[in-house]
């Protein structure tokens, strides 16, 4: 399994949000007039203009605060369930790039019910733009094809965001995991065999984000999600026909 991968080393993330802004900059995604909702996390969630979001979560551990940052984005699954969900509605809605492994949505996703696509995603990533196009992180495929790093990786000052061939990233992930294990016994990689966005966390993933790993979602395990998508296309094809 070649292609490219991200490594998001959360132990190095300072939540400067350079990645979140760089993503908007490269994709020329607009900003909303948000409110402060009692947290630094803003916008509150991924949206049609926000493909990358740093999630903040704070907890007490042994009487002292801990503050976890999770730079959430598409995992670019090795076998992307969303691809089948979208293809059920429209051909050519998703390009699964052979060379990089990037999962890229096209303008043809316009009109595909975003809730269905979201439900198919074990990490709750896809969102719709105002015009109904379903969107998410593109792995900066336009940059990567031109020999550049994705925008979020380019701006990261600490080495939290990394990008390279899958072998390189896996090796780096294992090296960092080994280095962190001593101090953080719960350090782990999240679903490393299934995704191209490898997250390295130092604590229970649920403390970072409910969708940090597949299957944390209430009522749906990753296995179940995968099984669901196995049956999904037929149903969606039917729906798609009705839509047509």
């Amino acid at each position: 399994m070649a292609g490219m991968s991200f490594l998001v080393d959360t132990s190095r993330c300072t939540a400067c949000r350079g990645c979140q802004i760089a993503c908007k900059n490269w994709n020329q995604n607009g900003a909303g007039m948000t409110k402060n909702l009692g947290t630094h996390q803003n916008p509150p969630d991924l949206d049609g203009n926000t493909f990358k979001l740093v999630r903040f979560s704070e907890h007490l551990k042994d009487g002292k605060p801990v503050w976890y940052f999770f730079a959430d984005q598409c995992r670019h699954c090795i076998e992307p369930p969303c691809k089948d969900a979208i293809q059920g509605y429209v051909d050519g809605g998703v390009i699964h790039d052979e060379e990089t492994g990037a999962v890229v949505y096209t303008e043809k996703t316009k009109g595909v019910p975003v809730d269905e696509v979201r439900a198919s995603c074990p990490y709750d990533i896809p969102r719709a733009k105002d015009d109904g196009t379903v969107v998410k992180c593109t792995m900066c495929i336009d940059r990567v094809r031109n020999g550049l790093k994705p925008a979020c990786v380019k701006v990261c000052p600490t080495g939290a965001m990394n990008f390279g061939t899958r072998d390189e990233m896996m090796a780096l992930a294992q090296e960092r995991l080994a280095a962190l294990k001593g101090k953080f016994p719960k350090a782990q990689l999240l679903d490393p065999d299934d995704v191209r966005t490898l997250y390295l966390v130092t604590d229970d993933p649920a403390l970072y984000h409910p969708y940090a790993v597949a299957g944390v979602r209430p009522g749906i395990s990753r296995k179940l999600a995968l099984r669901k998508l196995f049956f999904a296309p037929a149903r969606n094809v039917a729906k798609g026909l009705r839509m047509g």
Binding site: R17, G30, A31, G32, M33, T34, N36, N42, P43
Partner: peptide, 22 residues
């Protein structure tokens, strides 16, 4: 992180304002 000084530059920058609006 997201604002600079009194925000004269950054409050007018929608991407930054979105992250720390108030």
């Amino acid at each position: 992180t997201e604002h600079w000084q009194t925000g004269v530059l950054t409050r007018w920058q929608p991407w930054l304002l979105e992250t720390e609006p108030q």
